[in-house]
Design a protein around this nucleic acid. Structure first.
Lengths: 331, 331
DNA sequence: TTGTAGGCGTTATCAT
DNA sequence: ATGATAACGCCTACAA
C-alpha cells in the first residue's frame, strides 16, 4: 500500500537505484532525471521507509537514553537538556526507565546495542555497579555516563566536592562555626564527594569536623528533612547552620520542622540546600542552594555520543561542569 | 562481525528458516533440533537484529510520544505514567518534543507514521489546531490524544468542568460568596471548561458571576500570580477567595504576594489551585488544589494505543478521568 | 519436521 | 548518467 522506490522508479522509467540516488542527493544524476524523479516522488507523496534504510546502511539513527527513575526531577531536567539540543539532530531518542525492571541497566544497554536498536546511549545517573558498567566498554556502540564519575567511560559530571566545599565556605563566611551536614546515602547520589568537600572547607578554616554533625537520612524527601531536624534538635550543642547535600526537599522539610519548633531562619539556624529545585523558590525564606547545570549536562552528553557515533573519536573523555551557589534568603 | 541466523544455521546444520522458528518459539520443531539450535545460539551470544525483523514483519515495535514541551511538569508526569506501565510491554518509546521545532505536531506525526518509524503514537497536550489534527485520523497508525478533548480521535482527558465546579463549590461551602478566578489563556490549557465549571457552581448557588472577578494572566508562572494579586488588591470589593485554574505556580505567586501585603491565608483570603505540583505542599500554608490523575492518564493512553495497534478495539474511544480536590490549608 | 526460495525497501558496487 | 544485481538479516509460504 505505501509507496516505495519501486513505484517511483516505474513511473519515471528508471531503476530504484537511480531514484535512491536522487532522494539522497547524490551527485552524477542528470538534472532532467532529477527533476522528473522528484516531481513524481512528490506527487506520490513518498516517504522513505526508515527501517529498510537502517537495515541497508546498518545504522538505526537513534540513541537510547536510560534513566534510573523518571520520577526524579533531577533526571527529568537532564532529559530536557538532551532533548533541547537534540532538536535539529537526526537522531531519535528512545527512552528507557529501569526502575522496577528485571533487567539491570547494563543488561538493557547490552541488549539494545546487540539488537542494533541504538547507535549510542546515554546513561543517566546509573545505579548499577562499577563492574557491571564494564560491559559498556566492550560493546560496539558508544555510551556516555551522566552524573556519575567513571574512569573507563565517557562521562559528564559535576564537581561535587568543590560544590560542597564552596557552599560550606559560604556558611563559614557568615561566621558559622558549628555546621551540620545532612546526607542521604542512596547509591546513585555522590554523597561521598560532597561530604569530603564539606570536610575540606572546615579543615581549611582550621575547624575540626565533628562527626556528630554528620546526619544520614534514608531517602531524599521532605519527610527526611523532619527526621534530620529531630536529630539536630536533640543535640547538646546545636549547630547554627546546616548544609544539606541530600537535596532541596530534605532541606525544605528541615526548614519547616525548624520553623514549627519556633526557630527563625536564617537568624537562629541557616540552611543551604543542593539541587535548586523549583520548590527552593517557593519555601519561605527562599532557599539558598547549589545549582547543578543539569540542562547543560544533558546537552553535552548528547553532543558527546553523537561525536563518538560519527567521528569515532577515540579515547575516553570526561567533561566536568561547574555548579553555582544560588544565594537566596535561608542563609 | 555480529552473529546472525546464518552463523547459527551453519553450525547447527540446519537452515536459517529452522533457526528462525526456534528463536521465535514456533511449533513443529523437533525437541532435539530445538535444543541444539538454542545451545548454539547461546554459545554464540546471539541477539536478533531488531531492524531486520522489523523490516520483515513490517512492524517497528515502537510508539512515538509527542510532547509540546518537556519543561512542563504536567507533561513529564504524564510521561511517567506512560513509561510506568510500558515497563513490561514490548514497545519502545520514542520521545519527541515539538517546542521550537519547525515541524508542527501534525507534520511530525505524519512523517513518523509514513516513514514507518512508529506503530502508534501518543500526543500529549497538543497545541496544534483541530484542523491539523484531522491528519491523524487518516494515517494508518493509531494515535491517542491526551489532555485535550477531540471528537474524532481516541482521547483520554479529564473532566475540567466538573473539577472546576467542585473546587468552586468547596469555596462556596466555606461561605465565600465573592470568589475570583485566575485563568491563563495559553492555547493548550483547557481554561474554557474550567471557567465554565466555575460559573456553573456560582449559578447553582444563585450567585451572579461577576466578570470583574475573572482575571487573565499571560503565563502560568509564579510571577503571573503576583500580577493577579495586584489586580485583586486594586478591586473596590475585594474577593474573599480565589480559585486559580491557571495552575499551582500562579496560585503560589498570588499567595506570596498576598502574604507580603499583610493578608492571612485562608482567613483574609482563601486560595485554591489546580494541578497539585510538589510545590503545593511546600508553600505555607499548604495549598488546597485540584489534582489531576496524570499518571493514570499516561497509563491509560499507552494501553489504548497498544490495543489499537493490536487491533483489539475498533472505533474511537474516549476515556474521561476524574480529578480530586486535595484539601490542605489554604482554603 | 525441515529445506527452498522469495520478499520486506533501501543502499551500494559494479558494469554499461 | 543509469541499469543490473547483490547485499542487509530476518520471516514465511510452500514444498519435500
Amino acid at each position: 500500500m505505501p509507496v516505495t522506490l519501486r513505484d517511483i522508479a516505474d513511473r519515471a522509467n528508471v531503476t530504484t537505484a537511480t531514484v535512491s540516488m536522487v532522494i539522497n542527493n547524490k551527485p552524477n544524476i542528470s538534472d532532467e532525471t532529477r527533476q522528473r524523479v522528484m516531481t513524481i516522488a512528490r506527487e506520490l507523496n513518498y516517504y522513505p521507509n526508515s527501517i529498510a534504510r537502517s537495515l541497508a546502511i546498518s545504522k538505526s539513527n537513534s540513541v537510547g537514553v536510560i534513566v534510573p527513575n523518571l520520577a526524579s526531577s533531577y533526571v527529568v531536567r537532564i532529559l530536557q537538556g538532551i532533548k533541547s539540543t537534540n532538536r535539529d539532530i537526526e537522531y531519535t531518542v528512545q527512552l528507557f526507565d529501569t526502575i522496577g525492571q528485571k533487567e539491570s541497566e547494563a543488561q538493557l544497554f547490552q541488549r539494545l546495542a546487540r539488537e542494533r536498536r541504538i547507535d549510542g546511549a546515554i546513561l543517566v545517573d546509573p545505579v548499577c555497579s562499577e563492574d557491571e558498567m564494564r560491559v559498556f566498554k566492550d560493546e560496539m556502540v558508544p555510551c556516555v555516563v551522566v552524573a556519575r564519575r567513571t574512569t573507563f567511560l565517557d562521562t559528564v559530571f559535576v564537581d561535587n566536592l568543590e560544590a560542597a566545599r564552596s557552599a560550606t565556605q559560604y556558611l563559614l563566611g557568615k561566621n558559622h562555626r558549628d555546621i551540620a551536614c545532612v546526607i542521604c546515602r542512596k547509591t546513585n547520589l555522590p554523597w561521598e564527594d560532597r561530604v569530603e568537600g564539606y570536610r575540606y572547607a572546615l579543615t581549611d578554616s582550621g575547624i575540626q569536623a565533628n562527626d556528630d554533625y554528620l546526619i544520614s537520612v534514608p531517602d531524599d524527601g521532605m519527610h527526611d528533612g523532619e527526621i534530620a531536624w529531630t536529630r539536630i534538635a536533640s543535640m547538646k550543642r546545636r549547630p547554627t547552620a546546616v548544609f544539606v547535600p541530600a537535596g532541596d526537599m530534605v532541606a525544605i522539610g528541615l526548614m519547616k520542622a525548624a520553623k514549627r519548633a519556633g526557630l527563625r531562619i536564617p537568624q537562629d539556624i541557616a540552611v543551604v540546600g543542593f539541587d535548586d529545585l523549583p520548590a527552593a523558590e517557593v519555601i519561605e525564606p527562599a532557599l539558598t542552594t547549589v545549582r547543578q547545570p543539569k540542562l547543560e549536562m544533558g546537552d553535552t552528553a548528547i553532543g558527546m555520543v553523537i561525536d563518538k557515533i560519527e567521528k569515532r573519536s577515540p579515547g575516553v573523555t570526561s567533561v566536568e561542569l561547574q555548579t553555582k551557589l544560588i544565594v537566596r534568603e535561608s542563609a
